[in-house]
Design a protein around this nucleic acid. Structure first.
Length: 250
DNA sequence: ATGTCATCTTAGAGATGA
């Protein structure tokens, strides 16, 4: 069984790349982020034609998350208590419980959005209190947090920045402490499995990226392979994120 | 490392966010 997460940076703009990618990669379940698409405007028909049921949450202009599943979608949830933005979609897909997250960016450490980011992550973690960590579950998406210094191209360039602060890392660590494992993925190039590269300044071609798209899974999810699909970041009109693809058994 | 990209407003360049 194959699962994947991909911040597509607008599903409308990316559909011409998403559809062939789904055909070639053939994941059973995909978590999408930054669809930038109202739930009612989601391209259900093109993904249904490939055998996927879709659960979409969307504000319209910003944010937006979705789950595509060939294994069914039951118990859908598309909000996080007290946080109205469309940044979470959750459902049971066959035997696996799946959550797609688009964690707030934070902007800068002195911005109210940074506090909002920490609160959002804490609320996500608190929601797991009523969940059994023995059950097969994945929480995957754009966490906007680089868990370790090796997850950015140069930690010195991030002095004073978001994505690398102890508080953000502690918020992700709390999820791991609950019972999730940050699945290590093979890099597409170089030593680091970066999943995001800024569009500007040739960052992608210099492999100056960040690992901020994470697949967190409970231990009953057995992993046979995991990789960053760097090919999907190449070529014409890519997203600024690459998909992370994970092959699993339950 | 602020050099790009996507979207919306409101009809074409600017604001916003990443």
């Amino acid at each position: 069984m194959r699962i994947a997460t991909w911040n597509v940076n607008s599903i409308g703009a990316r559909l011409p790349r998403l559809i062939p990618w789904l055909e070639e990669t053939a994941p059973d379940i995909v978590a999408l982020q930054e669809t930038k698409c109202a739930a009612g405007a989601f391209p259900y028909l093109p993904v249904q034609a490939l055998g996927y049921e879709a659960l979409a949450a969307g504000d319209g202009r910003w944010n937006g998350v979705a789950i595509l599943s060939k294994l069914g979608i039951t118990d859908p949830v598309v909000d996080l208590p007290g946080h109205p933005e469309a940044r979470l979609a959750s459902a049971r897909c066959g035997l696996l419980h799946v959550t797609s997250v688009y964690v707030p960016n934070g902007r800068s450490v002195d911005d109210p959005h940074y506090t909002y980011k920490l609160d959002w992550l804490a609320t996500l973690c608190a929601g797991l209190d009523s969940v059994d960590p023995a059950e097969p579950r994945v929480i995957m998406g754009d966490f906007n947090v680089a868990p370790t210094d090796d997850d950015v191209w140069d930690i010195k360039a991030f002095a004073g920045s978001t994505h690398v602060t102890p508080a953000e890392r502690a918020a992700v660590q709390a999820l791991l402490d609950w019972g999730l494992i940050d699945l290590p993925a093979r890099p597409g190039k170089g030593e680091h499995p970066f999943s995001y590269w800024d569009y500007r300044a040739g960052m992608f071609h210099k492999d100056l990226g960040m690992r901020i798209d994470l697949v967190l899974a409970t231990k009953s999810v057995r992993v046979s392979d995991a990789y960053v699909d760097r090919e999907a970041r190449k070529g014409k009109l890519p997203s600024d994120h690459a998909p992370v693809v994970v092959d699993i058994d339950l």
